[in-house]
Structures are given as C-alpha cells and as structure tokens.
Amino acid sequence: MASSSLTSVPLSSSSLNIPHSSSKASASFVSSPIGAFSRTPKTLFAESRFHFHPKRNDYGFSIRAQTLDFSDSFFEGGFGSEDVPSSPGGPGFTAVEEKEEPQCPPGLRQYETMMVLRPDMSEDERLALTQKYEEVLVAGGGMYVEVFNRGVIPLAYSIKKKNKAGETNTYLDGIYLLFTYFTKPESITPLEETMLTDDNVIRSMSSKIRKRKY
C-alpha cells in the first residue's frame, strides 16, 4: 500500500519533473509531500483513480495541454483585435491653399466697375480708354488697379445712345470691361461722372465688393 501511494503522488503533481530528477532528489521530494497529502483527502481520490482507470489519467493530462493551447490562441486573437484600430489612428489634414489678395490699405475700400463700350472700337482705342481710366483712378487715390476684358458680348436688349454731336446710335453688341481697384469712397462720384460724359461708354455700373462667401 505504501509503495503504491508513493509512486502515484509524483505523477499527479508534475509530470515534467520525473525524467529530470535523480533517484536521491525523487526520494527527497517523496518525503516532503507525504505529510501534505496525508492531511488532505485528495490522496484517496488519486489512489482510487490509479487503481481502477490508469488510462483515463493519461487522457486528463492531454486534455489539460489542449486547454492551454486554446487559451493562448484566444489571447493572441485579443492582440489581433487591438492592432487593427491602431493603424487609422493618425488622420491627415490637407491644408487648403487660399488665393493671395493684396491687403486693403487703411482708409481705402475695394470697388469694381463694369463698363460696356462701343463694339466698333479698335484695340488701340480700347487700350487708350483703359489707360485713361487707370489714370483717372490713380489721380483719385486708387491703388492696385486690375482690368479684365470680357470681349464682345451681344446685349440682351438694344440700347440707344445719343452722341455729343447729336447723333443717335442703337447698339446691339458691347465690349465688357471690368475694373477692380482700391480707392477712397469720395472718388467714386467723379469717376461715374467721367464715364457718363464719355461717348465710348454705353453703360457702366460701380459697386463695392463684399467680403462674404456668397
């Protein structure tokens, strides 16, 4: 009885230690757990299992190993889930480039003037007219004068214009010019008077440029 119990105890405690330990070491191990196992009632269960079903003990050991592997795989799965959200962690913001516009000088405001010229003017005459109005604007305190020529556009309705000489002409087309500039508010009135006086200008309109997104 004593010998059978001694042989069963080390198997249940740790199967890996058996092949490494020597005879003396095994004797020392055997001596210490005898008291512990004698106190606890588990030794009785171990004895009963050893006698009746020796094969089932081997199956139990193998089952434990499989469970360990399963837990490892489950833990690795957890790591995998953690790695996935880390990749989109840093969103990139692309800076939108804005057009560079000249800053408004103090005391001035930005205006735009659209004027419709006679369609039968030649390019030289149109350039001379542009130069004339640029000088008028600069004389009135204007800065950063820009001119956009939109070409000859047919008018939506015909315009009758009386000449200084008393002649009346009906225009069906017009050359559209757009002036953009910074100037004092007081200099708009003389500019408009000049445009009204000019025979080459069919129609004109000046307005302040608003600084809103619409």
Binding site: V116, A156, Y157, S207
Partner: peptide
Amino acid sequence: KQARILSSLPF
C-alpha cells in the same frame, strides 16, 4: 437686377 442694368439679362 444689376445684370439687367448692364444688359446681360433682359428685362
């Protein structure tokens, strides 16, 4: 209304 004045749109 501004475009109408400049004859870009019909009245």
